[in-house]
Amino acid sequence: MKKEKPAAKPKKACIQQYNYRHQLVPIKKIPVKEAVEMLRSAGIDVQEEEAEEIMEFLYILTQITIKEFFSYH
């Protein structure tokens, strides 16, 4: 029986390569410890580093959504 290799953690550089920050609305960031508590209360058990990566992704997604919603094509 083969042992499964643990999944490689995505690197922050993957998120940072989509550098939309210069054209998006700034969003107030939630402290990492508060994000960990919020995720845990939702049933997602994460370490601070993982919570930081999740929140970074959510910030980018939120900023893109706001930009798309308010842009006039």
Rank of each mutant, 00 (worst) to 15 (best):
residue 1 M to E: 14
residue 1 M to H: 13
residue 2 K to T: 07
residue 2 K to H: 05
residue 2 K to N: 14
residue 3 K to H: 08
residue 4 E to H: 04
residue 5 K to W: 04
residue 5 K to I: 01
residue 5 K to N: 06
residue 5 K to M: 05
residue 6 P to H: 04
residue 7 A to N: 07
residue 8 A to F: 00
residue 8 A to Y: 00
residue 9 K to S: 10
residue 10 P to W: 10
residue 10 P to I: 09
residue 12 K to V: 00
residue 13 A to D: 07
residue 13 A to Y: 01
residue 13 A to H: 13
residue 13 A to N: 14
residue 13 A to T: 08
residue 14 C to I: 10
residue 15 I to M: 02
residue 15 I to E: 02
residue 16 Q to Y: 03
residue 16 Q to V: 04
residue 16 Q to A: 12
residue 17 Q to E: 08
residue 17 Q to G: 14
residue 17 Q to M: 13
residue 19 N to A: 15
residue 19 N to P: 03
residue 19 N to F: 05
residue 19 N to G: 09
residue 20 Y to H: 04
residue 21 R to D: 03
residue 21 R to W: 08
residue 21 R to N: 13
residue 21 R to L: 09
residue 22 H to D: 13
residue 22 H to R: 15
residue 22 H to C: 14
residue 22 H to I: 12
residue 23 Q to R: 07
residue 24 L to K: 03
residue 24 L to V: 14
residue 24 L to M: 15
residue 25 V to A: 13
residue 25 V to R: 12
residue 25 V to C: 15
residue 26 P to I: 04
residue 26 P to N: 01
residue 26 P to W: 10
residue 27 I to T: 14
residue 27 I to G: 08
residue 27 I to C: 00
residue 27 I to K: 11
residue 28 K to A: 03
residue 29 K to C: 04
residue 30 I to V: 12
residue 30 I to Q: 00
residue 30 I to N: 09
residue 31 P to R: 08
residue 31 P to W: 15
residue 32 V to F: 02
residue 32 V to P: 07
residue 32 V to A: 05
residue 33 K to E: 09
residue 34 E to N: 13
residue 34 E to G: 03
residue 35 A to K: 01
residue 35 A to L: 10
residue 36 V to F: 07
residue 37 E to P: 12
residue 37 E to Q: 13
residue 37 E to Y: 08
residue 38 M to R: 01
residue 38 M to S: 02
residue 39 L to P: 02
residue 41 S to P: 07
residue 41 S to L: 06
residue 43 G to H: 10
residue 43 G to S: 01
residue 44 I to Q: 13
residue 44 I to E: 09
residue 45 D to A: 10
residue 46 V to D: 04
residue 46 V to S: 06
residue 47 Q to Y: 03
residue 47 Q to H: 10
residue 47 Q to E: 09
residue 47 Q to N: 07
residue 48 E to M: 09
residue 48 E to P: 07
residue 49 E to V: 12
residue 51 A to Y: 09
residue 51 A to H: 02
residue 52 E to L: 06
residue 52 E to Y: 01
residue 52 E to Q: 06
residue 52 E to V: 08
residue 52 E to S: 09
residue 53 E to Q: 15
residue 53 E to L: 04
residue 53 E to P: 12
residue 53 E to H: 14
residue 53 E to A: 15
residue 54 I to V: 07
residue 54 I to M: 03
residue 54 I to H: 01
residue 54 I to K: 03
residue 55 M to E: 06
residue 55 M to A: 11
residue 55 M to I: 15
residue 56 E to K: 11
residue 56 E to A: 12
residue 57 F to K: 12
residue 58 L to A: 07
residue 58 L to I: 01
residue 59 Y to N: 01
residue 59 Y to W: 15
residue 59 Y to F: 13
residue 60 I to T: 07
residue 61 L to Y: 12
residue 61 L to N: 04
residue 61 L to D: 10
residue 62 T to L: 13
residue 62 T to K: 11
residue 62 T to Y: 14
residue 62 T to N: 06
residue 63 Q to I: 01
residue 64 I to Q: 04
residue 64 I to F: 06
residue 64 I to W: 11
residue 64 I to S: 00
residue 65 T to D: 10
residue 65 T to S: 10
residue 65 T to P: 11
residue 65 T to K: 07
residue 66 I to D: 06
residue 66 I to L: 15
residue 67 K to Q: 14
residue 68 E to G: 09
residue 69 F to S: 06
residue 69 F to A: 01
residue 69 F to K: 02
residue 70 F to K: 11
residue 71 S to C: 14
residue 71 S to V: 14
residue 71 S to Y: 05
residue 73 H to L: 04
residue 73 H to Y: 15
residue 73 H to D: 02
residue 73 H to T: 11
residue 73 H to W: 12
